[in-house]
Write a protein that binds this DNA or RNA. Structure first.
Lengths: 148, 148
DNA sequence: TATTGTTATACTCTATAACTATA
DNA sequence: TATAGTTATAGAGTATAACAATA
């Protein structure tokens, strides 16, 4: 066993530094790409959660997005006003509300993703095959790090 | 020549999607780590710029951080009030001001970085050597993507 | 007259506290 | 009495417009 020690090694720390800087820089760059979208980052995140989980109550949505319920009330109101989400009464508990992504919201979400993917894909185009192979394997590892 | 075509291939698009999601998720995760720091992200960014470039005028700093001059005025005022930056008259042009990182600001910046590196390094510790090797090579490629 | 920085003011996003309706 | 959601209000951050000082 050569890994899973108790303290990070010098190599781990050096790798952590360079990886952190690279990921943060790239993330910032990717975030700038959606500046011509009419959706805010919070709205995109909420819509994506609704797409993935189906209809949710404002409370569930707030918990998932790590914001307070009143903030989600306003966010959902904005999405509803823009025709991107719908609010429907809960079937059994009349205190609750079910928020769902509207078809227009899903379309906008897809468009937003497509635009970002195009930017990145065009840059990937200019990389040699061996770099693409590294990135393909790294994507899995990075995602595992994010869930750790 | 099997790369650098005019349009992204299907493979590039799929890689772009998974890489984008992984990088964004990890970046969000890393950003959450500094919640116990007293610095805001804008303040950290401004301090880091001052550390890298040396003393700058508010205008240069605003241009670099992509904020408007009045916003930088407020940001610098906050840094100065917290003892993290200093303002000095420009040697030749009395309209201008030179903002520099104070030793306390540099120390806080280093502390902030250390805390984030520790979080990531602890997670790297749990990865098998082959994954670490992939990440080491990926860090360079990711950084090149960010500057593209 | 042009440029640098600041002040005045407003807008967006999110928070906490108080309130209403329902269980 | 407890819970879900909303409304009222406040604070942080950044923007535009108007202003003061200097070149």
């Amino acid at each position: 066993m050569t890994y899973a020690n108790d303290v990070p090694t010098a190599t781990d720390t050096a790798l952590a530094s360079s990886l952190r800087l690279a990921v943060m820089r790239l993330a910032r760059r990717m975030r700038q790409q959606r500046s011509d979208s009419s959706l805010t980052l919070s709205q995109i995140a909420a819509l994506a959660t609704l797409e993935r989980h189906g209809p949710l109550t404002p409370g569930e949505l707030a918990a998932h997005e790590k914001v307070q319920p009143p903030s989600m009330t306003r966010l959902v109101a904005a999405l509803e006003a823009a025709g991107l989400a719908t609010r429907a009464p809960h079937p059994t508990d009349r205190r609750q509300v079910l928020v769902a992504a509207a078809p227009e919201g899903l379309a906008l979400l897809r468009e937003d993703r497509r635009r970002r993917d195009v930017w990145l894909a065009q840059r990937l185009r200019d990389l040699p095959p061996e770099d693409l192979e590294v990135l393909g394997r790294a994507a899995t590892v990075l995602d595992r790090l994010a869930s750790a």
